[in-house]
């Protein structure tokens, strides 16, 4: 499917194909999410050289390595901080952060809220698979209640995080949620996020089949991907079978939009310009003199 006037998208053009097949498990949703991102990048006509991917630690963190772009695989929970420095220093780059539910909300939760507050132009994709997959399946801030993980062997007793609600409340410019089942919609959502001048946060519901799915008896990969919309089931006749699923009602699409000035713009106009510096996208990487 090619958007008008754009060459047909071939994902191989955006991958370090020599590294494939990737390390992710069979049926892992992260691959689909990656396709959606690269597809959106293609349709937004972002040059690979200008694309900077910053990823944290975890399965989501490893996604970046397959992208034929400037990729930075940084420390656990901190990709937003690295991206903040990068985006401030290099406003000419398209900075995209790929993070996971644990990376972004647990260890990196503080950075998320401040990145949202700051509204510095970048796109943050949080791949939510409800689990710490890389470390073998421990409970994460988004693990649904009652779910089994290696650290909740008797069922998760903690309530879960609504990442989008958090981001919206923290003032993120654009907040959206998509799911891997809906690749095209997800791609379109990411396009909006990429095009947004400010901090955009996209939560992507992505399945961990091999660890989370198996542990919780959620079925095969196709079953899990279909389950992403399971909560759409009508309750007008009462649900005859109870089964907990993702608690956050699965609203997808754009969830919030806070029209606020982009931080970099503000910094350049309010702080740098009075000193005779800072064009629209002036960076600080080049030697000044």
């Amino acid at each position: 499917m090619a958007a008008e006037g754009i060459d047909e998208f071939d994902i191989r053009d955006y991958l370090r194909t020599e590294l494939l097949p990737h390390f992710m498990c069979p049926g892992c949703g992260h691959g689909i999410a990656l396709r959606a991102l690269l597809w959106a990048v293609h349709e937004e006509r972002i040059a690979k050289d200008q694309l900077a991917i910053v990823t944290g630690i975890g399965c989501s963190g490893r996604v970046g390595g397959y992208i034929d772009a400037n990729t930075f695989h940084v420390t656990h929970g901190r990709p937003l901080t690295f991206a903040t420095g990068l985006a401030l220093a290099r406003p000419d780059l398209e900075v995209v952060v790929i993070t996971g539910d644990g990376d972004c909300l647990a260890i990196g939760g503080n950075h998320l809220i401040h990145a949202c507050r700051r509204n510095l132009r970048m796109t943050c994709l949080m791949l939510n698979n409800e689990i710490y997959g890389m470390t073998g399946g421990q409970v994460s801030p988004t693990t649904s209640e009652a779910r089994l993980t290696t650290t909740t062997p008797y069922g998760n007793a903690e309530p879960t995080f609504d990442a989008c609600g958090l981001a919206a409340a923290a003032g993120a410019g654009l907040v959206g949620r998509g799911m891997t089942l809906q690749t095209v919609a997800l791609k379109n959502l990411i396009r909006e996020a990429l095009a947004y001048r400010g901090f955009s946060f996209v939560e992507i519901l992505s399945d961990c089949t091999e660890i989370f799915g198996r542990k919780n008896d959620l079925g095969s990969s196709p079953e899990m991907i279909l389950r992403q919309k399971g909560s759409m089931r009508p309750d007008f006749y009462g649900n005859t079978v109870e089964h907990p699923f993702r608690p956050n009602n699965l609203t997808t699409g754009i969830i919030a939009r806070n029209e606020r000035p982009e931080y970099g713009d503000t910094y350049r106009s309010e702080v740098l310009a009075p000193h005779g510096h800072g064009g629209a996208a002036a960076g600080v990487s080049a030697p000044v003199e």
Binding site: M224, R227, G230, R233, N239, T240, V241, H243
Partner: peptide
């Protein structure tokens, strides 16, 4: 299984 639960039914 709830007949309206696609994934559950498949599974």
């Amino acid at each position: 299984v709830d007949s309206y639960n696609v994934a559950e039914m498949y599974q």
